[in-house]
């Protein structure tokens, strides 16, 4: 068996930290021991997050990030705001009513419908749900959106696991 990675068990309460800070606290960030491999994971996860927000409309990704956080029960991500997304607190507060609230446009709705299906049962997303996203974003835009969504969802799920493992809920 390979040697076990030594996680820092004294990370303290994670509840009030941003997800980025949680990642740094758990994986070690710049202080991580490269021999353990954790530093590589931390760096790649950070790079993927930056690339996701650059490849997709920050407005769309922010709406979908908060919707994922609500569905998965991640309070830290529900309360967090991404600087520069251009989405108001009022709109994020109304995100549960996206199907009927007129402040959400057709692109918002297409992407939020996709996101909900993605979180609940990713393998059963139907053609129409994908087509609605493609209609507005095009093929490459849709591909970038889905990959960006994957990054956002992974970070939230990781945070939920770490919150439960190391405390903070």
């Amino acid at each position: 068996m390979p040697d076990c990675v030594s996680y820092d068990r004294s990370v303290g309460s994670l509840g009030q930290l941003t997800t980025e800070d949680v990642i740094t606290r758990v994986l070690g960030g710049d202080r991580a021991d490269h021999r353990s491999g954790l530093a590589d994971v931390s760096e790649q996860l950070r790079a993927a997050n930056e690339a996701a927000w650059a490849a997709t409309s920050p407005r769309l990704l922010e709406l979908c990030r908060v919707r994922i956080a609500i569905l998965l029960g991640c309070a830290g991500e529900v309360d967090a705001r991404t600087p520069g997304s251009g989405v108001s607190d009022d709109l994020l507060g109304a995100i549960r009513s996206w199907p009927t609230d007129p402040r959400f446009d057709v692109l918002d709705r297409a992407c939020l419908a996709f996101t909900e299906h993605y979180v609940i049962d990713v393998a059963s997303i139907d053609d129409d749900t994908v087509a609605a996203v493609r209609e507005h974003l095009g093929d490459e835009g849709a591909a970038n959106f889905v990959n960006s969504l994957l990054v956002v969802e992974q970070r939230i799920r990781l945070r939920l696991v770490w919150d439960r493992l190391f405390g903070g809920m």
Partner: peptide
């Protein structure tokens, strides 16, 4: 159809780094 190159590379790097962990 291709995914943004930076994003694709970063995602691949994250997956590879995770699989390489000795844990």
């Amino acid at each position: 159809t291709s995914v943004d190159g930076t994003l694709r590379t970063a995602l691949g790097g994250f997956a590879a780094a995770t699989v390489r962990l000795p844990t």
